[in-house]
Each structure stands twice: as structure tokens, then as C-alpha cells.
Design a protein around this nucleic acid. Structure first.
Lengths: 181, 181
DNA sequence: CGAGGTTGGTTCAATGACCGAACCTTGGGT
DNA sequence: ACCCAAGGTTCGGTCATTGAACCAACCTCG
């Protein structure tokens, strides 16, 4: 049966009856997970995503729109006159933190020597366990209480202002400062 | 400037200094994570991947080759005369279980009503926590001791033999039985 | 022996996604 | 009036994915 709309390549893993497949239909496209990672880091503005990711403008626009439509980001007016919007991560997006953390750990352990960043419980300074829990406190750490700490191995003096801003320790979700003024 | 090698779209997130990006270069392509999921379920043969995923043959061949080259699957001769190989998941691939589990949970909680499968500690029958730990035993359950149990909501009587084989409870990693003889 | 089946692929034309560069728009700032 | 910044859209060219067809080694059955 040939359905009316001709979505051939895109998005849907038609035959799969599986929540992983459902998830990948939403966030499985190229660049999407990196956009979400940046949003967790506190990146919010079109231009910041652009320079930090090195993503084509058209693709970024498409991804931001999809992620907004799926309720993972929320488009929010942060100033009138010049009307400017920012894209803020929602609860649904924040819920991807364990996935991204375990993916990052896997990537580092299997394909990378150096450790670039560590993640700590802001309250006590303890480094997080594999799933984002605090071994000392024995609790699951809310994402807003995760402190991202750059480690040596991360290149000093990067080109773009966003990478530069991410060079100092900061909490996740807290907006990055790129006041180029 | 046109560089000599023409890798434009593919694989590498060039500017990214991040273990998540490294990971996605390896397993971020379309279909790849679903192949790994199937490998965790115990799927091993070209034909079983093919019918279960509904993936184009050429793409499957490419993915199996990449995953083998990256050490996530291992190509293993399981019979001479007709020489036949199967693709078995390695430790490196098994290490993706927490990632896939948390991704699946996210997909179900946010984009799906029914629960299709549950995962239990084979030793005690307790349903696993969010990260694959056993709440009762308090231990991290080895993947080989995870029992996958189909729940109502999963369609009875599916078309392909692999889905049919996955209709009864079985441990992860344990090869699926598709003796069509 | 030859026909047909099973497994595991390769090849090919068509279609869709992605890329990078150029352009556009709205609203300041000077 | 002119230029700049932010946030896009448009467009031609390239790359990836798709589905269908083809290939080949080996086996089994008549």
C-alpha cells in the first residue's frame, strides 16, 4: 500500500514497534542530539548554536523548529524591539540528560583518551556516577544542580565565543554569557 | 575552497570537542542504533536483521561493516560449507545498554501510551530501574541477566519470524531462534 | 544432472537530506 | 543615509538512503 504522502527516507522507522525507535524518530536526525546537548549547556540563541556547532543555517532552523514542535525546546521572546526569541530546553528535553550522559561516557571510554569535562554535584562537589547520581549523597542529582567543570585536555582559547564561555565551570541549564558588546 | 576529499555530509562533527559527538560519529547514522538494539536482543544473522528492521539491504550491509570495524559487532563464522557468518555484539556494544535503555524509557514516557516490553532481573524477577539496576538486589544487573518480557500492547502474530521469536520472554544477548526448518 | 531454495550480499537509478554561500528582513546605532 | 546584528530563507551541488533487480556460492530434491 502506497500512502499518499511520499515520506521515503525521513524520520519514521515504519515497521518498528519499539520505544527506542519512537525516540529516534524524534531526536535521531543528524545534529539533533548535539543541539539538545548545547541546550542543556545553556545555549539558547540561534547564533550561539550556529557558531558553536558549525551547523548549516538551514539545518539549524529546521532542527529548532522540529524540537520546538516536539516540545523539547520552547521558543521564548526575550526582548521586544528588535523582537528576539531564544530557545529554552523544556522538562521533556531535560529528561534526556541521562541518555546523553551515558552516551558521552561510552564515547569517552571507547573512542577518546582525554577527559574533556567532568560533572559534579554542585552541593557537595562529588563527581557524578554513570547515570547522573551523586555517589556521596546517594541521590539522583537534578540537572540544574549539576556543575560542569572543564578539564585540562579541552583546548584553551577556542575560536567561537560560546566555547570560550563554556571554558569556566557552570551549572547546566544556566544561560551562557556571550555578551559580545 | 574545495578540499581534496569530499566528505561533506558524512559522519564527522568536525568542530566538536566532545565525547557525545565522538559517540555519534560512530553510532549516529540512521538505523545504526536499531541494529545495535537488535543485536542486544540476540539477533545475529543478516537475514534476521533484514526482516525485523525492514532496512534496505545495502544500508544493512554498510552498517554491519561499520559496526564491525568499530568493534561493536564481531563477525563470526558459525558454519563451514555453506560458509555462513553471524554478527555478535561485543563488550563495546553491550556497554551501550544503559544508553539504549534510558532512550527507550524517554521515548515511552513522552511519545507512547502503551508499554511494549518490560525488563527484569532474571535472578529475582524484579523490574529494572531506570538505569538497568535491580531495586531489590541493589546491584547493577549484567546485561546477560536481563530478562526481556513482552507486555500486552505488543502486537500478537507479527509478520516476520524474528518478531515472532521475540514474543516470548528471553534473556538479552541470548541468540534468537529462527529455525524456519 | 538440473531446478529451485537459502543466505548474504552488490549494483543501480531515483529521491531526499545536507552543505555552504548568498541573499533577505527587521530594527537599531551614528 | 549607511552600516551592523540577529535570525532567518533560497538555491545549486553533493552525499546518503531507498527499493528493486541482479549475483553467487552452496545445498537439496527429484
Amino acid at each position: 500500500m502506497v500512502t499518499v504522502d511520499g515520506m521515503a527516507l525521513g524520520k519514521d522507522y515504519a515497521t518498528q514497534e519499539c520505544s527506542i525507535a519512537r525516540a529516534l524518530e524524534v531526536i535521531g536526525e543528524r545534529w539533533t542530539m548535539l543541539v539538545i546537548r548545547d541546550a542543556l549547556y545553556g545555549v539558547r540563541r540561534y547564533n550561539d548554536f550556529l557558531v558553536h556547532l558549525g551547523i548549516p543555517r538551514a539545518v539549524l532552523a529546521a532542527r529548532l523548529q522540529t524540537l520546538t514542535a516536539e516540545g523539547i525546546l520552547e521558543k521564548r521572546r526575550y526582548q521586544e524591539s528588535p523582537p528576539r526569541d531564544e530557545y529554552v530546553i523544556t522538562e521533556r528535553g531535560i529528561a534526556l540528560w541521562p541518555t546523553l550522559r551515558s552516551l558521552g561516557i561510552w564515547g569517552r571510554e571507547h573512542f577518546q583518551e582525554a577527559r574533556l569535562r567532568s560533572y559534579r554535584h554542585a552541593d557537595c562537589g562529588t563527581e557524578l556516577g554513570t547515570y547522573g547520581e551523586c555517589p556521596a549523597c546517594g541521590t539522583l542529582v537534578p540537572v540544574a544542580d549539576v556543575l560542569m567543570v572543564p578539564e585540562p585536555g579541552l583546548s584553551q582559547d577556542p575560536a567561537d565565543p560560546v566555547s570560550k564561555a563554556l571554558l569556566k565551570p557552570k551549572r547546566l541549564l544556566e544561560p551562557v554569557e556571550t555578551t559580545s558588546a
